[in-house]
C-alpha cells in the first residue's frame, strides 16, 4: 500500500486563552510520503517544535485532520496513542532526553521493554542498534559519561530499536558542534537510504539543504519554498 506517512489538513493549534492566546499553528496542511527525507526549516519560535509534537502524538491539535500511516487518529484514545508512539514513531530530541539513571543499553532497550519484551531479547536488539550507531563499546555507560554526540547517537538507537518507520528529529544537532552535528545528519541520511521516513527540524539552512525536500514554517503556516 502506498499511503502517505503523514497527512495533515487544516491543523490549528493555539496556546493560552483570552488575551494571552497565541495561535501557533494556523491551518497547517502537510504531506510526507513514505521514505521521504523532509527538513522543516524556520526561525526560532515559529512553531516547528509544536508541529513536530503534534506529528509525534505527544501534543494534541485543536482543529483539523491528521492521518498517520493511513490511520485517522480522531477516534483513538491515550492507550492507542502510546501504542502508536511506541511502534511507528522514533523521536530524536535536541536535548537527547535519555534517562540519566539508566545505561545506554537500557535506554535503548526501553521501547521494547515497554512493549512487554523480556530483558534479554530487548537488550540484545539494543546492543545491535548501538553497534549500528558506532557505540558498541559504550553500551554500559550512563548518559553523563557520554559526549553530546554520543548521547544523540544513543537517542537515535532508541528511536530505531522499535523498528519505527518514521523518525522525527527536532533540532538533533542544536546542542552539538558543526562536525558532530554533521555526523548525526549522516546517520539520518543513511537511515533514509534504508527506507525510513525522516522529518528533521532545524533552523540551519546548511543542514536543511541535505534533505530531499524543505518545508518552511513561518507565522504558523507552512510553505514549500
Amino acid at each position: 500500500m502506498n499511503t502517505d506517512a503523514i497527512r495533515m489538513n487544516g491543523i490549528k493549534k493555539s496556546y493560552g486563552a483570552g488575551a494571552t492566546r497565541v495561535n501557533v499553528l494556523n491551518e497547517v496542511s502537510l504531506k510526507v510520503k513514505k521514505g521521504e527525507f523532509v527538513a522543516v526549516l524556520g526561525p526560532s519560535g515559529s512553531g516547528k517544535t509544536t508541529l513536530m509534537n503534534i506529528i509525534g502524538l505527544i501534543d494534541t491539535h485543536d482543529e483539523g485532520e491528521y492521518i498517520l500511516d493511513g490511520e485517522d487518529l480522531e477516534s483513538k484514545d491515550e492507550n492507542e496513542y502510546s501504542e502508536i508512539r511506541n511502534r511507528k514513531i522514533g523521536f530524536v530530541f535536541q536535548k537527547f532526553n535519555l534517562i540519566t539513571k539508566y545505561t545506554a543499553l537500557y535506554n535503548v532497550a526501553l521501547p521494547l521493554l515497554l512493549r512487554g519484551a523480556d530483558r534479554r531479547q530487548a537488550e540484545e536488539s539494543a546492543a545491535k542498534m548501538l553497534e549500528k550507531v558506532g557505540l558498541a563499546d559504550r553500551k554500559h555507560y550512563k548518559p553523563v559519561e557520554l559526549s553530546g554526540g554520543q548521547q544523540q547517537r544513543v537517542a537515535i538507537a532508541r528511536a530505531l530499536v522499535g523498528e519505527a518507520n518514521i523518525i522525527l528529529a527536532d533540532e538533533p544537532t542544536g546542542a552539538l558542534d558543526t562536525k558532530t552535528g554533521q555526523e548525526i545528519v549522516e546517520i539520518l541520511k543513511t537511515l533514509n537510504k534504508n527506507g525510513k521516513t525522516i522529518v528533521l527540524i532545524t533552523h540551519d539552512t546548511n543542514i536543511a539543504k541535505q534533505a530531499g525536500r524543505i518545508i518552511h514554517v513561518r507565522d504558523g503556516q507552512v510553505y514549500e519554498h
Partner: peptide, 14 residues
C-alpha cells in the same frame, strides 16, 4: 516528571 515524559514519548502507557 521529565522521566515520565520521556517514557511516555517512547510508548509508556498510563
Amino acid at each position: 516528571t521529565r522521566e515520565i515524559g520521556i517514557l511516555k514519548s517512547i510508548g509508556a502507557k498510563r
